[in-house]
């Protein structure tokens, strides 16, 4: 019979030790809104579960000189209540709050959403577009990598067996920089993105884009950084020609599958639509700063 062991360490070293020495498969537990569902369905049967929520720094939000430090297991509800972070990064914070329901929001976290490594994770394109980094703890200490380097394929991450995400660092936004995230779902909530799009732009005083990052979710095995889409924006105002180029670049980057949630054709077209709509929100937010 399946009977996993559960540990709730209080230090990073203890957690790394548990992960490094686990016999059989181990999983890190943050909010558990994916892990517990997958265990109940029988899809995952980790032998060891390491709950990181008792480790100082894994829950909570601090504004520091190098950016916003958000603990890996900080629940969506708490992120949504942080007025400073929400004002600085409306796209990032709105995205995480789209996950699940009000009840799920009490637990669902950035780290869980990212390490579940679904290409459809709602919080990921927003973090990617904003240039967020993941601070990863392991037996060799801590290392920091861009968020987009964490997932490598559906269900798999680049983290070693002894590693876990300790926190995220989201840069401070300055000047006319703003982000947005939109997803397409058949309903209005409680759903999984058929396509997701995060856009972050910086404008000059004339409304011309000087920097941009565009990320697409659910249109490839991992969340994409679409450089061609960013190029379509940089140096331009948000006019019809720019939007058309952006749409085309987003569509060109797609490499989706047809499955129960959408066809290749549908996902590709909607990626272009969402890129345009998300960019419009990001531009308008940036212009207002």
């Amino acid at each position: 019979m399946y009977s996993p062991t559960y540990a709730a360490p209080t230090t990073v070293d203890e957690a790394v030790g548990l992960l490094a020495n686990a016999s059989g498969s181990a999983r890190v537990l943050s909010g558990g809104t994916d892990l517990i569902i997958q265990m109940r369905s029988g899809r995952l049967r980790p032998q060891t579960i390491v709950d990181i929520k008792n480790i100082a720094g894994t829950i909570g939000i601090r504004e520091e000189a190098d950016g916003w430090h958000v603990g890996a297991a900080t629940p969506g509800a708490e992120i949504g209540e942080n007025a400073g972070l929400c004002a600085a990064w409306p796209g990032v914070t709105e995205a995480v709050q789209l996950i699940g329901s009000t009840q799920v929001q009490g637990r669902a976290s950035f780290a869980g959403n990212l390490c579940n490594a679904s290409p459809a994770g709602d919080s990921v394109p927003g973090l990617v577009a904003a240039g967020a980094k993941a601070v990863i703890a392991g037996k060799n200490g801590k290392r920091t990598i861009p968020v987009e380097q964490v997932p490598v394929s559906p269900g798999r991450t680049s983290l070693a067996a002894d590693e876990f995400i300790y926190e995220f660092i989201i840069p401070k936004s300055s000047g006319k920089t703003a982000d947005a995230y939109l997803r397409f779902i058949p309903r209005t909530e409680m759903d999984i993105a058929v396509v997701g799009c995060g856009v972050c732009v910086t404008l000059d005083n004339n409304g011309v884009c000087t920097a941009a990052k565009v990320s697409l979710g659910a249109v490839a095995p991992t969340v994409l950084v679409v450089d061609a889409a960013a190029k379509a924006l940089i140096g331009n105002k948000l006019d019809d020609a720019t939007l058309a180029k952006l749409d085309a670049a987003a569509q060109a980057a797609c490499n989706p599958i047809s499955d129960k949630r959408g066809t290749i054709e549908f996902r590709t077209k909607v990626a272009g639509v969402l890129a345009r709509r998300t960019a419009a929100i990001a531009f308008s937010r940036a212009a207002a700063r």
Partner: peptide
Amino acid sequence: ALNEEYIYTKDGRLDNASFLDYRVPVASD
């Protein structure tokens, strides 16, 4: 009318046996 359906794999297995992918309307719809 809008979203509910049964989706089968080629092998004849039901592919959307959950409320996540069998979409009944939610209140905000």
